[in-house]
Design a protein around this nucleic acid. Structure first.
Length: 205
DNA sequence: ACCATGATCCGCT
DNA sequence: GCGGATCATGGTT
């Protein structure tokens, strides 16, 4: 199935997500993050992620299942959205089997479709388009959520059966994967579980 | 008190 | 232009 933008509207299957988290995290790079609206479509190529696992002191799931992190423990292929720093949302792809509190944070995407709408969501004032605006659109986890209008309302969405989903890229482009310590954490810094495309302009740091 | 962030301000080149 | 400090702001523990 295709829409007018020629994007294949085939969500990645459940089996993609219900695998070991580090493996899924690396394979998420290059996939398309898509949201379908009544009046259009938004899409970006995933260029930066971070894995959060069980028994990982940096993970929200580390201290057990709570109301906030409940979705992390669902079956892989759901969307875990959390609120942080009093004003920001961040979106994660839940991974592994039910009962494992694991997920992959979407830290940055390269905007592909629906740029006008993303710009409107990110920058309230109308302004002329510059390369800086484009680079600032989706180069961080909270920026991605603002651009795609993702809030608490989308927490728990099924990525195999909802207006938010992932698809294979239209063309397979080659890229190198870099891995570093995760950003903005205090515990678990020794784990190199941040993965990003080398030299992609939308990588956050 | 801490926090998986982002925007701004300030003192430098 | 930069890199680092600072702050905005509210849910969670």
């Amino acid at each position: 199935m295709r829409n007018s933008s020629n994007i294949p509207l085939s969500p990645l299957p459940r089996s993609f997500y219900t695998r070991p988290t580090l493996r899924v995290a690396k394979e998420l790079l290059g996939k398309l993050f898509v949201r379908v609206f009544d009046d259009g479509i938004m899409a970006g190529r995933i260029v930066e992620v971070e894995a959060y696992c069980m028994n990982d002191p940096a993970s929200h799931s580390y201290r057990g299942r709570t109301q906030r992190n409940d979705v992390m423990f669902w079956e892989g292929g759901h969307l875990y959205v959390y609120f942080t720093y009093g004003m920001h949302y961040c979106a994660n792809v839940v991974t592994n089997v039910e009962g494992q509190g694991e997920a992959v944070l979407i830290r940055a995407v390269e905007p592909l479709l629906g740029l006008e709408h993303m710009l409107k969501n990110r920058f309230s004032r109308p302004r002329t388009l510059t390369s800086n605006h484009l680079l600032n659109l989706t180069n961080g986890p909270a920026k991605v959520c603002q651009a795609f209008s993702i809030t608490k309302a989308e927490n728990g969405y099924d990525l195999t059966n909802s207006p938010i989903f992932l698809t294979e890229p239209l063309t397979n482009q080659k890229f190198s994967i870099c891995s570093t310590s995760r950003i903005g954490i205090r515990n678990g810094v020794e784990k190199k579980w941040r993965f990003y495309m080398k030299n992609n302009p939308w990588v956050s740091i």
